[in-house]
């Protein structure tokens, strides 16, 4: 693995909000086809760190490298341009629009006349959503009228439809039942096998431990450490999250 160029490398990222130093010099990386769990308490700074990669909250200092190339991510549009897709915890859906409109928001399919091709978008949306959630047929309803699982399906469909290379999932199973959670786990494995790199953000260790190849733990805005999940126990990771104690400093990134 060490000879390979990382898909994403974030070096020495800083973010301040007024007097609050939310992210303090965190460095993490992601390989193709790898799932990295980003763990930490609520308010630890993991979401802010990931938002600096997705462009929602640009970082103050630090470098972001995609495939070894330094990139400048100032806006969500920039990150999409680099093949980064994000599933936000809030899902970021426009409640008044239907599923196809949300799925293609900002990247609409147009007809030859330069108008929106709603038929084509609905057709494509049906295909991708059916794959995720076969019972989901009322995609033309406003998203407001949908269940939590359906909304989540729309958000996930939007992230995977455009052939993302890098996926950021912020608490992707927070609103889901056990059955749907299993489906998301299945999906993550499938995307991983396609060579997509995934950052999986969670405050709950159990959600990510079995899926992730590595876990990076953040506490109070600082990186506690990064560990291979095969080399540590859940208890050790829990220790990192709660106490900020890193077992085996040698293995840290």
């Amino acid at each position: 693995m060490s000879t390979q160029v990382p898909l994403v490398e974030m070096r020495n990222i800083h973010k301040r909000f007024g007097g609050v130093h939310a992210v303090q010099g965190v460095s993490i990386d992601l390989m193709p086809g790898e799932v990295v769990g980003v763990l930490g308490h609520n308010g630890a700074g993991k979401t802010v760190l990931m938002k600096s990669l997705s462009g929602a909250i640009p970082c103050d200092e630090g470098d972001i490298l995609i495939n070894g190339q330094k990139v400048d991510i100032k806006r969500p549009r920039d990150s999409r341009h680099h093949g980064i897709e994000t599933i936000y915890q809030t899902l970021a859906l426009s409640d008044n629009l239907d599923a196809p409109a949300n799925l293609f928001l900002g990247r609409e399919i147009m007809t030859g006349y330069g108008t929106l091709d709603d038929g084509a978008m609905e057709n494509e949306a049906r295909k991708v959503i059916q794959r995720l959630n076969p019972n989901f047929t009322n995609i033309k309803d406003p998203v407001r009228n949908m269940s939590g699982g359906q909304r989540q399906s729309v958000a996930i469909a939007r992230a995977i439809y455009f052939n993302a290379k890098i996926l950021i999932m912020d608490e992707p199973t927070a609103a889901l039942g056990p059955h749907e959670t299993a489906m998301v786990a299945e999906l993550i494995k499938q995307l991983k096998s396609e060579g997509i790199g995934i950052f999986l953000i969670s405050h709950d260790l159990h959600d990510v431990f079995d899926l992730a190849d590595r876990v990076s733990v953040i506490k109070n805005g600082k990186l506690v450490g990064t560990q291979q999940t095969s080399q540590v126990t859940k208890d050790e990771v829990l220790g990192m999250i709660i106490l900020g104690k890193n077992p085996g400093e040698s293995k840290a990134a």
Partner: peptide, 13 residues
């Protein structure tokens, strides 16, 4: 889209 959810619109690019 902006009327439905301004943040989502921004995040959608």
């Amino acid at each position: 889209a902006i009327g439905g959810n301004p943040e989502a619109a921004e995040l959608s690019g």
